[in-house]
Design a protein around this nucleic acid. Structure first.
Lengths: 317, 317
DNA sequence: TTGTATGCGTTATCAC
DNA sequence: GTGATAACGCATACAA
């Protein structure tokens, strides 16, 4: 910890703390000569204000808490990183916490953050937990992103159907009629159903192939099933899973998109590098994060906001 | 900010602050009955200790600062994420800062962190900057990771040659004799030269093809050059760049590894998904981060540590 | 078993 | 122009 304080500077320069403070803050009312002498001394000693003391005094903080599950998924990491970046551009530092396995531990983290953090963003949540029980009485404002709507908290909802709808439009243009969706992510299921329900009149058939997970391996394994059902276009719940299917196709000499169109979800940066480059539905993370920064800047009564996804067309459709 | 303080609890329960403090900390010397009454009240009010005040009082902090350039590269994000995770497992929170374009701004960030952070980890550094000038007088201990050795600061060095050496051994076993290295990252150049210098007696020829960057696009563009020189094995400075070359091969019906062996660098998680799965040299990020946590836990005189990379063999060799 | 009093480093009010 | 001084919330040495 730093040992150069206002007091020390004051002693060394023979003035009072108040004067040093004024000089360092460029507040009026210090003789220019004295001011510059103090500034010089402070610089020489390497004075750095103590944020803990300042926060304590001002009853505020320059930190935003982010709770996320630890994941090596690129998209998860990118959400966190971009949020940190945007927060920093607005003068906030971010404190990162990993979502613990139960509510009690979560509460402990949040309590630890009291006095340090005014706003906490949840990028993940355990569906079995009731926020009202855990967050009860905690001093921060809470923002739930892409989780669910909870009464009394900010919720930023990602609306899946928009991007999927654009994707389906592209598929129809390409003459695809037997469209499948593979994976196990429920939030994406709803979007898919919603989007496809609008296209019934054109005699589109759709299928849902549920897998145990939405991993690369699942994507590979689901290959034979898709062939057997004569699927001509497939949405995967994650890009990762789509890569698995692309691998299956590569191994079995199935041409994508000639034989089958493939669409992923997440727009992780590798999707552009895949062979063929993967078309995907992109998460509006930048817009969402921009909104979070606004909420951090000024607390508001709980807000509900909806954000749309969008379709990114590459080579696989 | 929370408004429930020790004082408030003390007033409401009709005892002194000291007693409340003792009760909440389970320190001996409080009548059990009183103790439980206080605990109950505190829980009811949702008391949360104020970390700013506590840190101020104890002259310590539970945060570690991480300075990194903002990058969407997976490996960069993974380094940060894993470090945050490991720190959290040891009771630290991480404050993330983005490396600003000049020393003055960097100094401002670090000053802001005084009183909040004892340890700052640099995952990036601007080579033109002199740490001694910028960090002069700042109260924290500094750790430079994979950057360079600077006098008076911790430096954790990643030694490239080890992993590359293993890779070359594999290539020789496969009968490769014309080995190239592509990219523009100087730290990797040294490792490559070092590793290859050991194999001269077997009549290995090696080539260095310098590119403007080490991106996907560079990897695609370098394809014709490699063909022209009859290269039979190639190291790329990044996995990303290797993906570019794999794309080139895919487009031109060049079989990997039959026609040419390909090795990347970084082990980003997609390397396993590529067609064919990419062999790569892996960064010892977990080991490095474990060591950082140790340094954060107890400050030591400046330390120099070296970490080895390792070769991960998949389908592309 | 409980309470008083002090200080951590800032900021800001008020008085000189 | 400048200087005492009082908070902010917590922890603890020292009294009672």
């Amino acid at each position: 910890m730093n040992s150069v304080t206002l007091k020390k500077i004051a002693e060394l320069s023979g003035v009072s703390i108040r004067t040093v403070s004024r000089a360092l803050k460029n507040q009026p009312g210090v003789k220019p000569e004295l001011c510059s002498r103090i500034l010089e001394l402070a610089a020489h000693l390497g004075y750095t204000p103590n944020v803990a003391a300042r926060n304590l005094r001002l009853q505020r903080s320059s930190c935003v808490g982010i709770i996320s599950s630890f994941s090596e998924n690129h998209i998860t990491m990118r959400k966190v990183n971009d949020l940190q970046k945007q927060l920093e551009e607005h003068g906030f530092f971010s404190l990162l916490g990993i979502l613990p396995p139960n509510g009690a531990e979560l509460r402990i983290i949040l309590q630890e953050w009291a006095g340090m953090v005014n706003t906490v963003v949840f990028l993940n949540w355990d569906g079995r937990l009731q926020p009202s029980e855990i967050l009860q009485g905690l001093p921060q404002q809470f923002i739930f992103v892409d989780i669910r709507e909870f009464d009394g908290y900010h919720s930023l909802i990602i609306e899946r159907a928009s991007g999927i709808r654009e994707g389906v439009t592209q598929l129809l243009r390409r003459g695809r009629r037997r469209i499948a969706r593979c994976g196990n992510i429920t939030s994406r299921a709803r979007g898919f159903d919603l989007a496809l329900s609008e296209f019934t009149e054109r005699r589109v058939e759709h299928f849902y192939i549920q897998t145990s997970d939405s991993s690369f391996k699942n994507g590979m394994e689901v290959g034979p099933v898709l062939l057997e059902k004569n699927i001509d276009a497939v949405f995967f719940d994650t890009d990762r899973m789509a890569y698995g299917f692309l691998k299956f196709c590569w191994q079995n000499n199935i041409r994508v998109p000639d034989a089958i169109s493939v669409i992923g979800f997440d727009d992780d940066p590798w999707s552009g590098y895949a062979c063929p480059a993967l078309s995907t539905v992109a998460h509006p993370l930048i817009e969402v994060n921009r909104y979070i920064v606004q909420l951090a800047l000024q607390a508001e009564p709980p807000v509900r906001m909806e954000f749309s996804t969008r379709f990114i067309n590459r080579e696989s459709v």
